[in-house]
């Protein structure tokens, strides 16, 4: 598991991370969400034993990355946001060498490389030098490399960028499977809809500060947009007017209405169906993470509580 408490790190005058605190339990997937430049990658680098925090404590699988980086590295797999690979070396050799660098025997390294090639679907490219790989294929190689030593903590920095939709589904399935095997996983991504389906919980990072649980609760409880699509848009508009509910002008996705919480949404749906409107789609306009993220960034830019 990952435990982070009051971590801060600056580069010269720039405070990249000011105060980050969160926990990722074994067997769970946590999303790390924040706008560009919010300190996500810096935080990841500190967890990956590459950067020393200026303040605060980090525990990865019970070890301190500063005091005992070796113990942390044994337990932790890191997939960086920068896609570097040894250009002239084949996919298979890359994984074998990585295995050797994790102090596996040649035989173990070879077997593990084969498993991972099958796992991430690079069978046909296994003997190719890595410089011929596309961005998405390098992404898979990078993931395989992070898994070489069967880590119990996994840090994935933007794992889905560059992947096609099918590969994203595979990634999601793989991440969920690893979590079910007891791995603690922290995923950062810009694709919030992606994270909605993958992650159990989320850490919101804004200007180097993680949002507190209370702030997230408050944001969740706020009314949010739901999208309704009806077979006959005119009938839906009339029904909403009758119920005195303000609705946005309909577009190709349907009509958006503001609803406070799931209970109210269920009641609204029942009323609309009761009024004889043929509803074809009814759901939140944006995912949970996106809603919270947008709400949090809105309140911070408006100078609200932090």
């Amino acid at each position: 598991m990952i435990e982070v408490e009051g971590v801060a790190r600056s580069f010269g005058d720039v405070q990249a991370v000011r105060d980050a605190s969160f926990t990722v339990n074994a067997g769970s997937v946590t999303a790390l969400i924040g706008p560009n430049g919010s300190g996500k990658t810096t935080l990841m680098l500190m967890l990956a034993t590459l950067l020393r925090p200026d303040a605060g404590t980090i525990r990865i699988a019970g070890h301190d990355p500063v005091a005992d980086p070796r113990a942390v590295r044994t337990a932790m797999g890191w997939m960086p946001d920068v896609l570097g690979s040894w250009g002239t070396i084949s996919v298979r050799r890359t994984l074998e060498i990585t295995g050797r660098l994790y102090e596996r025997t040649p035989v173990q390294a070879r077997e593990r490389a084969q498993q991972l090639i099958d796992l991430v679907g690079l069978v046909e490219l296994a003997e190719q030098p890595t410089r011929v790989l596309s961005r998405g294929q390098k992404q898979r190689l990078s993931l395989a490399r992070a898994l070489v030593h069967e880590p119990s903590v996994l840090l994935l920095d933007e794992p889905a960028s560059g992947l096609d939709p099918a590969a994203r589904v595979e990634l999601r399935t793989l991440v969920r499977r690893l979590a079910s095997e007891g791995v603690a996983i922290l995923v950062s991504s810009h694709v919030l809809a992606e994270l909605d389906e993958m992650a159990d919980s989320a850490v919101y990072l804004e200007r180097g500060v993680t949002a507190s649980d209370e702030r997230i609760e408050a944001s969740r409880a706020q009314s949010r947009d739901w999208r309704i699509r009806a077979v006959d848009p005119a009938a839906l508009a009339a029904a909403l007017k009758k119920l005195r509910i303000a609705a946005s002008p309909p577009d190709h996705l349907g009509t958006a209405v503001s609803v406070a919480g799931e209970v109210e949404a269920a009641q609204l749906l029942a009323k609309l169906v009761g009024a004889g409107v043929a509803i074809s789609a009814f759901g939140p306009a944006v995912g949970d993470f996106e809603h919270t993220f947008l709400d949090l960034s809105r309140t911070t830019t408006e100078g609200g509580p932090r």
Binding site: A48, T49, L50, R70, R73, T74, M76, W78, P80, V82, L83, G84, S85, W86, G87, T98, L101, Y102, E103, S142, R145
Partner: peptide, 16 residues
């Protein structure tokens, strides 16, 4: 050069 190519950090996180 390795740092620029993004291959240094992935070696540094191993047990090397």
């Amino acid at each position: 050069g390795d740092r620029d190519a993004g291959t240094l950090a992935t070696t540094q996180v191993t047990l090397a």
